[in-house]
């Protein structure tokens, strides 16, 4: 009995060893196949859509890096940051692309990012010297309307008109937060007064940009909070010159979109190479007609034709990321108080 039992065990062990050897062999084989390093970039949804910059950027960078670039898309900029904070230093990401200056203060405080080594001659309307975050595009927030509309020229005129606008909620959307900062940067302590004057012009507040823009295109509102570059989309992609952005004399608030390398990056050298590639012509020329924003660097090729028709704000407003972070709660309370009446 005892003998049989042991032998039985032997046979099982032998089988197990065989299986293990086989498994190990397979593992080695897959490792050989997967030798090309994978650069993982977290970004927002619309970046990787078929019309977004993602597919073209991937092709262009892979042609020169000898690597496999993989985008992981997570909602919008805010959910991108939330995901990184959840993952902490266990993140798969080498690079994160798609935060804006409203989020960078929180991002920097997390200590998850490492300084970059990129140098570039930026064409931003402001000076840029952030040691961690590298800008890749920018745009001005603006109210977009049908070209036939006689648009107001500042917030006070908008408030005095009976035009209806759709805006995004600053608690769930980056443009919405941008508008909050815009009014605050332009009017400071008078911001609450502006908001209460605007309250009867605000048709509704949406969760995100897509919903608001969809409402505007279906004719619900006279104007929608978007970017000065939005009319270029209609002009270039749809050959429709019927949309304009309203030029406000207070100046327009800037959105600067940035990328950064993670401290925990598995391929820090590739991440550096990507950030440098990001400010090169090959990347920057893709941006205007896919992300519909201004490239961060003026390229040899220059901007596409339709962009010359866009309005040019006289002054660019932007709160520093620290100021934006400090002022946010107060501005949000003012906004809530004014619009909840």
């Amino acid at each position: 009995m005892e003998f049989f039992h042991t032998c039985h065990l032997c046979r099982n062990l032998e089988d197990a060893m065989k299986a293990l050897t086989l498994a190990a062999g397979l593992l080695i084989a897959t490792n050989v196949v997967a030798e090309t390093p994978v650069l993982t970039i977290y970004t927002y949804d619309s970046f990787v859509s078929d019309w977004g910059p993602g597919p073209l950027v991937e092709k262009a960078f892979e042609a020169q890096c000898g690597c496999d670039l993989q985008f992981v898309a997570t909602g919008d900029g805010a959910s991108l940051l939330a995901r990184l904070l959840l993952e902490g230093d266990r993140s798969e990401a080498d690079v994160v692309l798609g935060l804006d200056t409203n989020l960078t203060a929180t991002a920097a405080k997390s200590g998850l990012f490492s300084p970059h080594s990129v140098s570039a001659d930026y064409s931003l309307p402001i000076a840029w010297d952030d040691p961690v975050f590298v800008p890749y595009d920018w745009g001005y927030f603006a109210f977009v309307h049908n070209a036939t509309l006689a648009a107001p020229t500042d917030f006070r005129a908008l408030a005095a008109s009976d035009l209806k606008v759709v805006i995004q909620d600053p608690r769930s959307s980056t443009p919405g937060l941008g508008l909050l900062m815009w009014v605050k940067a332009a009017y400071g302590d008078d911001a609450p007064e502006i908001w209460s004057a605007l309250s009867d012009n605000i048709l509704t507040v949406t969760k995100g940009w897509s919903e608001a823009y969809g409402l505007f295109l279906s004719g619900e509102a006279d104007m929608v909070l978007s970017y000065t570059t939005s009319p270029a989309y209609h002009l270039i992609a749809e050959e429709d010159a019927g949309k304009s952005a309203a030029l406000f004399t207070e100046g327009h608030y800037l959105q600067v979109e940035v990328a950064a390398k993670l401290k925990s990056a598995k391929h820090p050298d590739l991440a550096d190479a990507f950030l440098q590639f990001m400010v090169s012509d090959a990347f920057q020329d893709i941006i205007p007609t896919t992300n519909w924003m201004y490239p961060a660097v003026t390229t040899q090729q220059g901007l596409p034709d339709g962009f010359s028709t866009l309005i040019q704000p006289e002054s660019a407003l932007l709160l520093s990321s620290d100021a934006a972070a400090n002022i946010r709660d107060e501005a949000l309370q003012e906004w809530l108080a004014a619009l909840s009446q």
Binding site: V72, A73, Y213
Partner: peptide, 27 residues
């Protein structure tokens, strides 16, 4: 939302991505 990646998008997610890229008609 936290789990999604570019390769495994379901139809509603694709629809939202289209909207995010100005493609309201396609959406």
């Amino acid at each position: 939302m936290l789990f999604a990646d570019s390769e495994n998008a379901t139809l509603p997610l694709q629809m939202y991505r289209l909207m995010g890229a100005y493609q309201m008609q396609a959406a």
